[in-house]
Design a protein around this nucleic acid. Structure first.
Lengths: 197, 197, 197, 197
DNA sequence: AATGAATGAGGGTTCATTCAT
DNA sequence: AATGAATGAACCCTCATTCAT
């Protein structure tokens, strides 16, 4: 009894290993297959192309974040609390699978022509959701008026930079500590920076 | 009268066009040669490999920043003023050659194995210099104590994200306005966020 | 109650659809299976290989012609009448299943190494039977002496060319008219061309 | 001093060897390169794809025929004489390069979708030119009225069948004799068949 | 008999790099 | 220094065939 989904998962996991190690362009389908313990052909029973694997990796992560976001957005919470939780959740996920984090910070940018929809979803969806929360916070008077588009972009960049730093650090123990401190420090920074005085 | 350096510059400029348009991996040496109006072979009289072209592009930019930084660091100025000037200078440069900006935000991350020294210089040098300034600011009491490593990384990320947003925007007029607003907004954000109250 | 033979027929019919549409080399076993509404594996319960399907398609048609020919050959008829009937029968069959006609004109030639026995049977059997009839006609004085080998080949070629033209024509109504005219025209041409004056 | 045309010719010739031996689909670019004594990559400096090689092979032959046809068409000759000369020229060419003949009879038919323009030129151009000559002959009263479209197709088919027979014959001496006889026999056949009595 | 996921050899094509001119 | 044709390793992907269920 072979459950296809398991095999697709297997390949996704293998691809994460190889792509995080070598980068997308230097990762070969043969390597991914070998890492997964399947034949190359098998990959193509689950993905139409190498690109689609990368897209799927992004999609899984993006869906996870967006589902969490959806569950959060309509709750009766201070906007800043929502932001805090999102950030914490994101960092926790990165910590759980640092290699996925590596891939996401590394491979998200490619020329518009070959930009994968799944990646666009990440690149546009995340900041726009951050912006939505910021606007709510401004409306509620939790933070001062500001250019929410710029601040959202800056926040997104801060987060990715911190993830990048964590994720490319050798020591796995420091990773955890670093990310926990970073979450606090970032919230602190942005809360103060946006505070309504 | 074309001196070798001129030709190297010619190739660098052509490479910037092509790489910013297609991305490093999809940019071919043939295309770069054609854009430069020289033969492929000529490229290899000035660069040892395709990688070295990318590295050179980074190096030119990094040197520019670091030279500016060196001229700044020993001046008798408030640390925050130094930060402000650095940031302004950086954004002005990006505005002057947005395509270089594109390349820098896009190609800076690649697997460690292939990481070019020139890129590492950018990736580690810039945040570490930001960190130095932040430490000076803390020491002088201009800003509150904080984890300068994290804040420097966050600041670097914010800057790159804003550049990224500007640089991938279609409208060139908005680019300018956006980057000017962004410089002010970012400084505002970080100054408030780090302010000693 | 589906007897194995039914399924083999099912696959043969499906293969005819797909191969006539795409050509033998571009027709995949998956497509044939899908068209037949069976699994790929099932094909291999009835055919040893993809080639054998093509061979079978030819064999069915060739057998049909040869059986008709056998019933004709010993009858007491003018040789030219036999030729006429063969030709009429062939065109009627093509009209009944134009796609088989397409396959036969298209796929009959392949390198000797891979030449399938079933195709050889068609390629050599048909002209040699035409030649036999022509020789009979010469012997009976119905037609003038001629190089029957060449004339048989020419006749075979004429027929295939006309079939090809009919079969690749879009309009199905014209097909019928065209083939009927062609049968008459061809007989006319060859009867006059070979007539004993 | 390397003249590109020579190299393109070299590859064309090699491709003719390999394709006539194995058939287009079983001929690999590696084999063609080896036969030509060049690297695979070199092929792609002269042809955009494997298909384009086949197309080029056809084009060269078709151009040869069409050029000859153009030189013939406006001469003050009986139409049947023109036909005769065309046929003789064609058979002489086939005799000179039987392998090209093999390729032309073998690879000319493939599904419309992937039909190469160069092949279409052959498949439509030749019969339509034959038809033009036949119409002229009818107009001049050299031959009886007939359906020139069908007769042209039949003639084309006859020629190709004869070529096919010659070209797949082992013995090279017989080839010559056979084709010479065939030219005479075919003209005889069609002249009688179309004669105005 | 029927299934269809798994297989992996093999194919067409690309492109950074070289080197004779 | 400049050229650009030649190179060939390496890549992504296909698809006929198999075999455990």
């Amino acid at each position: 009894m072979s459950r296809p989904l398991d095999k697709k998962e297997l390949i996704r996991k293998a691809a994460i290993q190889v792509i995080s190690r070598q980068g997308y362009y230097y990762a070969t389908t043969d390597q991914i297959a070998e890492e997964a313990g399947v034949a190359v052909g098998t990959i193509y029973n689950y993905f139409r192309s190498k690109e689609e694997i990368l897209e799927h990796i992004f999609k899984v992560e993006v869906d996870k974040r967006f589902r969490y976001y959806e569950g959060l957005v309509n709750q009766n919470l201070p906007a800043l609390e929502k932001l805090q939780r999102l950030l914490t959740m994101h960092f926790a996920e990165v910590l759980r699978e640092p290699q996925v984090g590596q891939i996401m910070v590394r491979e998200r940018l490619s020329p518009e022509d070959q930009q994968l929809p799944g990646i666009r979803g990440f690149l546009q969806g995340v900041p726009s959701r951050l912006q939505t929360i910021l606007e709510e916070a401004v409306a509620k008077g939790e933070i001062r008026p500001c250019d929410t588009e710029i601040v959202a972009a800056a926040l997104f960049g801060s987060i990715e930079a911190v993830v990048s730093k964590a994720v490319f650090a050798q020591d796995q123990n420091k990773q955890k500590e670093f990310l926990q401190n970073a979450a606090r420090e970032l919230m602190d920074l942005y809360v103060r920076g946006l505070e309504n005085r």
